[in-house]
C-alpha cells in the first residue's frame, strides 16, 4: 500500500490530537511504520490545532504532512486552510454540522459526516472526532480495521477507562453511517 499521509485539523478541544494518536496506534498494531506530529504551543490552549499522521510500509522520512492523502477538517477554518493542499485523488472528511460549504476541488473525494449532531443525538457529546474516525476507517481500507479495539485501549488512558465504551460506540456509529 505504500504510504498514507493524514492531516487532522480543527479547534483545540475537538480531540484532533487524540484521533491522530488512535490512527497511529492502528498502524503500529498492523506492524507498520508510523509517525504523529502535533502542532504545539498556543493552539493547544484553544484556537486551531492540527496533527500530521503518517502510516507507511517503509521507514518514514519527514514526519511533516504537507500534501495529505486524507484531510479531516473538523471546522471551516481548517477546510479553508488545507483544502488546496490535499494530494490529487485524496479524500476530505468534513464535519457537516460545523461546515456548511462543500469542497471546491473536483479531483478529490469528499465525505460529509454530520458528526457533531450525531454525537449529541446519540449521547456521545465530545466524540464527533471518533464518529469521523469510524467513517475514515470504513472509506480507507489501507488503514485496516483489525485493531480498532486494541488501538482504542492504548489511547484511552487508564484514568479515563470509563470512556472506552463510548469511544468504541462512536467509532462504530461512524463506521456504519
Amino acid at each position: 500500500m505504500g504510504t498514507t499521509q493524514i492531516l487532522i485539523a480543527g479547534f483545540g478541544g475537538q480531540g484532533v490530537l487524540f484521533a491522530g494518536k488512535f490512527l497511529a496506534y492502528m498502524g503500529l498494531m498492523e506492524d507498520k511504520q508510523v509517525s504523529w506530529l502535533p502542532s504545539y504551543g498556543p493552539e493547544m490552549r484553544g484556537g486551531t490545532a492540527n496533527c500530521s499522521v503518517i502510516i507507511s510500509d517503509e521507514s518514514i522520512g519527514s514526519p511533516i504532512v504537507s500534501a495529505p492523502d486524507i484531510l479531516i477538517a473538523m471546522n471551516l477554518p481548517s477546510l479553508d486552510k488545507y483544502e488546496s493542499s490535499v494530494a490529487s485523488g485524496g479524500m476530505i472528511f468534513i464535519d457537516g454540522t460545523l461546515i456548511s460549504r462543500g469542497i471546491e476541488r473536483n479531483d478529490v473525494k469528499m465525505h460529509n459526516i454530520d458528526a457533531t449532531k450525531l454525537a449529541s443525538q446519540n449521547g456521545y457529546s465530545g466524540l464527533s472526532n471518533m464518529i469521523i474516525m469510524g467513517k475514515v476507517i470504513k472509506e480507507c481500507p489501507a488503514l485496516g480495521n483489525a485493531y480498532v479495539e486494541a488501538a482504542l485501549s492504548k489511547v484511552v488512558s487508564e484514568r479515563h477507562r470509563n470512556l472506552y465504551d463510548s469511544n468504541l460506540a462512536a467509532v462504530t456509529l461512524g463506521y456504519n453511517i
Partner: peptide, 10 residues
Amino acid sequence: DGTMGQMMEP
C-alpha cells in the same frame, strides 16, 4: 529540536 521532542513514533 521541537519536532523531535513533540512527535510520537514507535
